[in-house]
Design a protein around this nucleic acid. Structure first.
Lengths: 246, 246
DNA sequence: TCAAAAGTGTTTTTTCTACACCCATGG
DNA sequence: CCATGGGTGTAGAAAAAACACTTTTGA
């Protein structure tokens, strides 16, 4: 592809730099995926055990180098699939991490992405150079490779901001869910607890939560009513500047 | 530096890839600086006119390639100084922009940074390959080079989120300021207007705004009381989860 | 009949909103 | 004495917070 032809670079006037233009074109970038989910009322993150140098055998985020002709957003999906076999995941970019010596192989900046998924629906399977995978509670992470801890933290903060603004909580709930399930997602992500009555009072003002007149079954207590998410109503609320203000 | 020695890469086992490891190390990254300020009650952004290909003569953000051994945060400061002679500016990284063909010279991803400064204190002077500089209202930008419009938009959104959470408004106000000046900063950034009485009522609950018992002088109307920002009190408020909720 | 969670109601306190009105200064 | 912002007060509405109580199910 023309864009990646070094000759094209040389044909252009780039004497503005005191070094040859090609010295700039010796870096790489990578993607690191922070895949969150909720289980046991706790926020979890998907880790892999690295089976390749550097940081071999360390727990780490699924992440890898971006191909020269690959868009960043596309790469996040591909990288996660390569390492964990998970697909159809929606990512959001958070930020770049670019310390000069963060990667022992050369100048590599990494772009952090996060996703928020149903743990039950996505059973990871280690592949490519990943040796193992596991879901781990965010509150008690082991030592991670590279600067992955900082990446997790930045993504967690972003998740906390996003969940009060976008309906990403629906991505970790069944189509039909109870209000308590919804509450537990918020509590897990925001790492706090809410008063049940007041929480529901607030929810009851949101028209994008539609009661289904359908009940939970098979629970050994009073069955809860099931709700569903209404996209159109949410869109209306969003345009008026909706936020969950907890 | 060892980290950038290609031989070191080759010495490591990297047969996990179907292409030579060096094919990844042929990209570059750049920084784009979105410097905001407020004047005439409007949010402004600093632009340069490009004096070098590509996009020669276009209005653009001050931005340039990152040196191989340069941290991203450091680079933002250096790049802005090279092109506009402005220094001592505090930047915050927003995100990466990495479409494959966003740059005609090759694979270049750019990292967007924003800063928020006093326009009066920072008079830019075009240098290096920049031909001109100017402050331009964010509400009516000309056509910009590359994907710079998207970068401005993302940074503006981040600025709007940050100003209600961090005391960055103090960076565009004199040490001693009036409450109306403060209100105008918020109005400019958030592109809205507030009721004076209610705005002040809210401010009066914030202990980090300290009245100085000192008055404005030389104005042809009732002089306003001057206030100052108290770092320690803000820190206390921040720990309790402070936000301006407008 | 008990445990467990669902679901509702009440009361108090706090905050928001929309205004109206007075004040101090320079010209 | 007037234009221009500075500055304060009030009343009503709305929202948040705390907490108590009733309901329904399976075991």
């Amino acid at each position: 592809m023309a864009a990646h032809d070094p000759d094209k670079r040389k044909s252009l006037t780039y004497d503005i730099y005191t070094v040859p233009i090609d010295t700039f074109f010796q870096s790489a970038f990578s993607i690191d995926c922070v895949v969150f989910g909720v289980s046991n009322k706790q926020l979890q993150v998907l880790l892999i055990q690295r089976g390749a140098a550097p940081y071999k055998n360390y727990w780490a985020l699924p992440g890898d180098l971006v191909f020269p002709e690959e868009d960043l957003d596309t790469s996040a999906i591909r990288v996660l699939k390569d390492l964990t076999s998970l697909s159809k995941i929606h990512f959001k970019q958070v930020k770049a991490f670019g310390e000069v010596n963060r990667h022992p192989l050369g100048r590599v900046i990494t772009i952090g992405y996060y996703a928020f998924v149903k743990i039950e629906d996505y059973t990871p399977k280690a592949s490519f150079w990943a040796k193992k995978t596991k879901w781990h509670p965010v509150n008690s992470l082991p030592k991670l490779a590279f600067d992955h801890r900082a990446i997790v933290d930045a993504c967690h903060e972003r998740l906390q901001e996003d969940i009060i603004q976008y309906p990403i909580w629906k991505d970790v709930l069944p189509n039909k869910f109870t209000l308590t399930q919804l509450q537990e997602v918020f509590e897990g992500v925001l790492n706090t607890t809410f008063d049940k009555g007041n929480f529901r009072k607030k929810l009851s003002t949101y028209r994008f939560l539609k009661a289904l007149n359908e009940m939970q079954t098979g629970v050994s207590h009073r069955p809860a009513e099931l709700y569903t998410f209404n996209e159109k109503e949410f869109e209306k609320a969003r345009q008026k500047g909706h936020r969950f203000d907890f």
